[in-house]
Design a binder for these strands. Structure first.
Lengths: 215, 215
DNA sequence: TTATACCTGCGTAATTCTACCTAGCCTTCT
DNA sequence: AGAAGGCTAGGTAGAATTACGCAGGTATAA
């Protein structure tokens, strides 16, 4: 049945908050029970007003959004967080989500995206703006470009295979028995890998393998 | 001006090829100059018929799609590859793109997605189906969940710091000198890391650090 | 038919890591 | 004040990796 969900808005632009409140409350299932113009205000407001969801910007004075997310998560673990921001880059997104946000929507997105995000989050799901989703994929594909152009192709098949096992955290001995080779052979391959890639230690090779997606 | 782009289709379903040819050639800018029912046929066909783009499935008999991509890339580096498949998972996508595909579209996608992919690829861009894009983001967000819930928080600050250096491919000696600690101290921390995380070897720790984003 | 590159493997010595343990010093919480 | 956890560092022993070189067999290309 129709419980009314209580929402708090946090953004340093009063106009945006006002407009947003108006839009959101067109759906009778939602009620904006408070507004804050910065992180400090948000935290103190939440001390006195209960809510189910916070919709917040990342760029705010006095305790910026990223910090606010962490603080809210610690002090009010049950309250969901939806980030609504103009920050359209991987870093902000990753940090926000890693710090505990449940959703990430851009101010340039259509309003129905925000509405969908709110509904999904209140149902316990996460929501990521398709714009951001596409952005992440672009980053990923670009990283593949770099990976391809750089150096994987100077490795022989055997070397790539060995590298893959290294990347999976296997010791030379294990690799040798898996491939039915002498440990010495594996060592030779590993040495060649190190020489070709200019990496001396195991750790570097593993990192290389993992970042190249060989794992 | 309007050069006609030459396209070859590779898929083991004849019906699909026929329908696809029909759809594609509705745009007079494209001409399907050949069809193959498997990887071998594709490669031999390309030896005699020039083309700008190959649209291919991944699951084909006689030299599967993944292998075919690599072979095409080696023997005909100028020909672009668009994967059209029902494989809707991260692994197939990653491998296909890593092996040199320029685009990835699902058979369940709307046709205009395929058309857009073809056009973008022929303009030198890459194209990834939004469905896949969303899938990748979901994987990413889920991995954040695991990272958060699992174990990073049972590590002390110093341990996280050490883990980060390990993840960056540094040997104990280097970490020690960087942090102005004894090698033995670093070893102790590393041992504790291994114990807490249940990971025995360096490689595993590096992999852990990298996948947790500590690098 | 030479080259060339690749895969395989060994020798030796030095370096590094692992696996146990102990232990002093510090801060924080009770 | 006492307990607990964290940071530092050492001892000892053994396991593993690294560095350097060497070399035979095979496949592929010039």
């Amino acid at each position: 049945m129709g419980a009314v969900y209580r929402i708090i808005l946090a953004d340093d632009h009063q106009i945006l908050r006002a407009g947003l409140k108006d839009l959101i409350e067109k759906d009778k299932a939602f009620k904006v029970v408070g507004q804050a113009k910065d992180g400090d205000e948000l935290l103190s407001l939440m001390g006195s007003v209960k809510c189910d969801l916070v919709i917040m910007d990342l760029s705010m004075p006095n305790r910026d959004g990223m910090q606010a997310i962490q603080d809210v998560r610690v002090k009010f673990p049950k309250v969901k967080i939806l980030v609504l921001t103009m920050q359209k880059d991987q870093e902000h997104f990753k940090h926000a989500m890693a710090h505990g946000a449940s959703g990430y929507v851009l101010k340039e997105d259509a309003y129905d995206q925000l509405l969908m995000a709110v509904k999904m989050i209140l149902r316990g799901k996460r929501f990521v703006s398709p714009t951001i989703s596409k952005l992440l994929t672009d980053y990923y594909v670009r990283s593949l470009d770099e990976a391809e152009s750089s150096s994987l192709d100077i490795l022989t098949k055997r070397e790539q295979q060995i590298l893959q096992f290294i990347g999976n955290g296997m010791a030379n001995k294990n690799i040798a028995s898996r491939l039915k080779l002498s440990v010495r052979t594996v060592e030779t391959h590993r040495a060649n890998l190190g020489r070709k890639l200019g990496i001396k230690n195991t750790a570097g090779l593993v990192k290389y393998a993992v970042t190249k997606g060989l794992s």
